[in-house]
Simulated assay, not measured.
Amino acid sequence: MNEKKKLNEKYEVGLMIVSIVIILALMIGMTLYPEAGKAIGAQVMHALTYSFGSVMQFFTVIVLIFLVALAFSKYGNIRFGNCKPEFKTMSWVAMMFLQVWVQELFTGHFWNGDIILMLHLP
Rank of each mutant, 00 (worst) to 15 (best):
M1Q: 12
M1A: 12
N2W: 04
N2R: 06
E3L: 02
E3T: 12
E3I: 07
E3P: 00
K4L: 00
K4R: 01
K5I: 02
K5S: 09
K6Q: 07
L7H: 08
L7S: 07
N8H: 14
E9K: 10
E9N: 06
E9F: 03
K10E: 09
G14H: 02
M16L: 15
M16Q: 11
M16W: 08
I17Q: 04
S19H: 01
I20Q: 06
I23G: 11
I23D: 08
I23A: 15
I23H: 09
A25K: 12
A25P: 04
L26W: 07
M27F: 11
M27S: 09
I28S: 01
G29N: 10
M30E: 00
M30L: 04
M30K: 03
T31S: 04
L32Q: 02
P34E: 00
K38F: 05
A39Q: 11
A39K: 11
A39Y: 08
A39D: 10
G41V: 13
A42M: 10
Q43N: 11
Q43L: 08
Q43A: 09
M45Q: 14
H46M: 05
A47W: 15
A47V: 12
L48P: 02
L48I: 12
F52V: 06
F52H: 03
F52I: 11
S54K: 13
V55Q: 03
Q57V: 11
F59V: 15
I62V: 14
I62H: 00
F66R: 01
L67K: 04
L67D: 07
A69E: 03
L70R: 15
L70D: 11
A71W: 12
A71I: 05
F72A: 08
F72T: 14
K74M: 06
Y75T: 08
G76F: 01
I78M: 05
I78V: 13
R79P: 01
F80V: 14
N82P: 01
C83W: 05
K84V: 07
K84R: 14
K84D: 10
K84P: 01
P85N: 09
P85C: 05
E86T: 14
F87P: 02
F87G: 03
K88P: 02
T89N: 05
T89E: 02
M90K: 07
M90P: 00
W92P: 01
V93F: 09
V93T: 10
M95P: 00
M96T: 15
F97L: 15
Q99I: 06
Q99H: 03
Q99D: 04
V100S: 04
W101L: 14
Q103K: 05
E104P: 01
L105G: 03
L105Q: 06
L105N: 02
F106H: 05
T107W: 01
T107G: 00
G108S: 12
W111L: 11
N112P: 01
G113P: 08
M118I: 14
L119S: 13
L119G: 12
H120Q: 11
L121V: 15
